[in-house]
């Protein structure tokens, strides 16, 4: 087995008095793609946010790239820079006059921390170059001068991946990355994610409702419904009896995508 990238041990999170995540333990090894599945309200997003230290945990310990996450989400900046998180939706993407290039540059940080005043010409060039490359890798270099508010859902997702790839990362946490995408855009997104994961050596934890995609591209599945109900390879974890236990009886397990004929662009 490879290096452990994320180690979650006996994690419990409450929202108010309500336990949302209860005694969850799992490990992610390097360069694996793990899906987190479960019904609405199962605590998937909460789990991801707790792993990042965005919400406090009641119990348990979390190690990211070998560094313990502090009780209030403290993590050395050098470690945090190697982790990227993509939320489901941006609160204010329409309000902000921000170009795609400016946005992707926000994901960039220098390898060594420096005083912000000393963002020298060389650093700026380095950043501009990194942004250009990231956009190219994600096939959206033409979008550089567009405003975030002008992008389609599919374009925005590709730009988000450029935000992740603009600097070397080891761990990616995606919260329903394919939400709001039609079948074709979702395929594009996952193909790109798959390519990048292999070329960049990313370890991925992604919350997903798309079990077809999970079965096709993930190595491992964690089934969460407040506590971890089962985990393992997709064939095992997504077998009908396990799904029925997770979602309740009468569950229709797979989304049926109506693919458009090949070669037709939106």
């Amino acid at each position: 087995m490879g290096e452990t990238i994320l180690d979650v041990s006996h994690l419990s999170v409450r929202r108010g008095a309500q336990p949302v995540v209860d005694d969850v333990s799992f490990c992610l090894t390097a360069e694996t793609d793990t899906a987190l599945v479960g019904p609405n309200g199962a605590g998937k997003s909460t789990l991801v946010q707790a792993v990042l230290g965005l919400i406090p945990r009641q119990q348990g310990s979390i190690q990211l790239l070998g560094h313990p996450l502090g009780p209030r989400g403290e993590l050395p900046a050098a470690v945090r820079d190697q982790i990227a998180y993509l939320p489901q939706q941006f609160a204010a993407k329409g309000r902000l006059p921000l170009t795609v290039a400016e946005f992707v540059a926000l994901g960039w940080t220098p390898e060594r921390p420096t005083c912000p005043l000393s963002l020298s010409g060389a650093r700026r060039r380095q950043r501009r170059e990194a942004v250009h490359q990231a956009l190219q890798l994600c096939g959206c270099e033409r979008l550089a001068p567009a405003l975030l508010s002008e992008l389609s859902a599919g374009q925005l997702k590709r730009v988000l991946l450029a935000f992740c790839v603009v600097r070397p990362r080891r761990l990616l946490l995606l919260d329903e990355a394919q939400a709001g995408l039609d079948a074709q855009a979702s395929d594009h997104f996952h193909n790109l994610l798959f390519e990048l994961r292999r070329s960049q050596g990313w370890t991925i934890l992604q919350v997903s409702h798309d079990l077809t995609m999970v079965r096709r591209s993930c190595d491992r599945v964690l089934c969460l419904n407040r506590s971890l109900r089962c985990s393992g390879a997709p064939d095992h974890a997504l077998a009908p009896p396990q799904l029925e236990r997770l979602y309740g009886s009468g569950f229709v397990p797979y989304h049926h995508h109506h693919h458009q004929p090949q070669g037709v662009q939106p």
Partner: peptide, 17 residues
Amino acid sequence: RRQILLSLDEPLARSRG
């Protein structure tokens, strides 16, 4: 950088430290 990230999305900003 912080101001833009915070204006864009608070969880995203906090995930960046």
